[in-house]
Computed example of a mutant assay.
Amino acid sequence: MRVGVTGHIHLAPETEPLVADALRSELDRISDRPVHGVTCLAAGTDQIFARTVLATGGTYEVILPALDYRDTIEPAWRDSFDELLARASSVVHTGYRSSGTAAYVAANQELLRRVERLVAVWDGEPGCHAAATDRTVDGARRRGIPTTVLWPAAARRAPRRT
């Protein structure tokens, strides 16, 4: 089964293990076999998802929004990004040279084209741009892609890291 992910980048540190547990439970619920994940490998949710997929015996592919995408990732998350990118079964580029909303929207659209299910780690709050989690969830639902929204009871977002 091909499962995509969308979700918040900035999660409070104590929320990350809660999200990992929720993702593991959801992956176990939707498939009795390891899944093939699809992710843009952003910090936060996407990287937690990739690690959870690996821990459950699955594989994942990465969709890179733009050629400069790595440079846009906060320095604290780059080593994790590099490690997880190296472990991907495949990497797809959207064709954009520079990161930005258009590239992120294109990556989300490509992700939705490749999946049978979507898992969203989302607090239910509306986003502030066209590539926000709520827009990806809405797009999946419009396409008829089964979508599960996860937000553990004690979860909270964190301010942007510097």
Rank of each mutant, 00 (worst) to 15 (best):
M1Q: 05
M1L: 15
G4S: 05
G4T: 06
G4Y: 08
T6P: 14
G7F: 01
G7K: 04
H8C: 05
H8M: 07
I9H: 11
I9A: 06
H10D: 15
H10V: 06
H10S: 13
P13M: 06
P13D: 03
P13C: 02
E14N: 06
T15R: 03
P17D: 01
P17V: 01
L18K: 00
A20K: 05
A22W: 00
L23S: 08
R24A: 15
S25I: 13
E26G: 03
E26L: 05
L27M: 09
D28P: 00
S31Q: 08
S31V: 06
D32T: 12
R33F: 06
P34R: 10
V35W: 05
H36W: 08
G37K: 12
G37D: 00
V38Y: 01
V38S: 04
C40G: 12
L41R: 12
A42E: 08
A43W: 01
A43N: 10
T45W: 06
D46G: 10
D46S: 08
I48L: 15
F49S: 09
F49I: 11
R51H: 15
T52F: 03
L54N: 11
A55G: 12
T56E: 09
Y60S: 09
E61T: 15
V62Q: 13
I63E: 01
P65I: 14
P65Y: 03
L67Q: 14
Y69L: 12
R70Q: 13
R70S: 06
R70K: 14
T72I: 07
T72A: 03
I73A: 02
E74H: 11
R78Y: 00
D79T: 08
F81Q: 07
D82F: 03
L84D: 05
L85F: 12
A86Q: 05
A88R: 11
S90C: 00
T94G: 03
Y96F: 14
S98V: 04
G100L: 12
T101K: 13
A102E: 02
A102F: 02
V105K: 14
N108T: 09
N108S: 15
N108V: 15
L112Y: 06
L112N: 10
R113S: 14
R113A: 10
R114Q: 04
R114K: 15
V115R: 06
L118R: 09
W122Q: 09
W122V: 13
G124T: 04
P126A: 03
T133L: 02
T133F: 07
D134C: 10
V137K: 04
D138W: 10
D138Q: 13
R141Q: 14
R142N: 06
R142D: 09
R142L: 15
G144R: 07
G144E: 11
I145K: 01
I145Q: 00
P146R: 00
P146L: 05
T147D: 12
T148A: 04
V149M: 05
L150Y: 01
W151C: 03
A153D: 15
A154K: 02
A154R: 03
A155E: 13
R156Y: 07
R156S: 13
R157C: 01
R157N: 04
R157K: 01
P159Q: 09
P159S: 04
P159V: 01
P159C: 05
R160L: 05
R161N: 02
T162I: 12
T162Q: 02
